[in-house]
Amino acid sequence: MVKIIVAYLIIINTIGFFTMLIDKRKAEKKKWRIPEKNIFFIAAIGGSLGAMIGMYVFRHKTKHWYFKFLFTVFLIAHMLILYYFLFKK
């Protein structure tokens, strides 16, 4: 079970990271963008760390307080859930 959770988190956080990269590149080229609700959905289902890292690496959406706030809330929730699954007795 733990291996499945870890594999899932690696995959979804990679998706979150590259979602921020793709949206940044599209913004620079003035093309169609990834909707914010989709970015938040990826973060909510486990990709918060990857999305947050991508946000700062690519300097994308860093001026929007709600991205910083929600990514942090999601990350804390995910850490608590992961702690529960790894250390429950």
Rank of each mutant, 00 (worst) to 15 (best):
I76N: 05
P35W: 07
W65E: 10
F69Y: 10
F67C: 04
D23C: 07
G46Y: 02
D23S: 08
I39M: 13
L9M: 15
I10D: 01
K29M: 14
T62K: 09
F41W: 11
G46M: 10
A51S: 15
F17I: 12
K31L: 15
A77G: 05
F67E: 01
A27N: 14
F74K: 05
K68M: 04
T14M: 13
I53G: 04
V6G: 04
F17G: 11
A43E: 03
R25C: 09
W32S: 05
I15W: 06
F40T: 01
V57I: 14
I22Q: 09
F67L: 06
A27E: 09
I39D: 03
I53E: 04
F67T: 06
F69P: 01
I45T: 06
Y8E: 06
I11K: 04
I11E: 09
I34Y: 07
I4K: 13
K68A: 11
T19W: 02
I4A: 13
V6L: 15
V73R: 03
L49F: 12
A77V: 07
Y56S: 06
Y66M: 10
P35D: 08
I10M: 12
V57W: 10
E36G: 08
L75T: 05
R33M: 10
T19D: 06
M55C: 05
K30A: 14
T72P: 01
Y66F: 13
M20L: 15
I53Y: 05
L70G: 06
S48C: 13
N38R: 08
S48I: 01
E28V: 12
A77I: 10
T14P: 02
I12V: 14
F71E: 04
G16R: 02
F69E: 08
R59D: 09
F67V: 03
G16P: 07
G50N: 02
I12D: 06
K68I: 12
F40Q: 00
F71R: 03
K63E: 12
K26I: 12
I12F: 01
A77N: 04
V57A: 11
K68N: 14
W65A: 11
F17E: 10
I11A: 15
L75D: 02
H60R: 00
Y66K: 12
V6R: 02
T19P: 01
S48T: 08
M52L: 12
G54V: 09
F71L: 14
A51K: 05
M55D: 07
T19M: 14
I11D: 07
T62L: 01
A43C: 07
A51M: 04
K29D: 13
I5N: 07
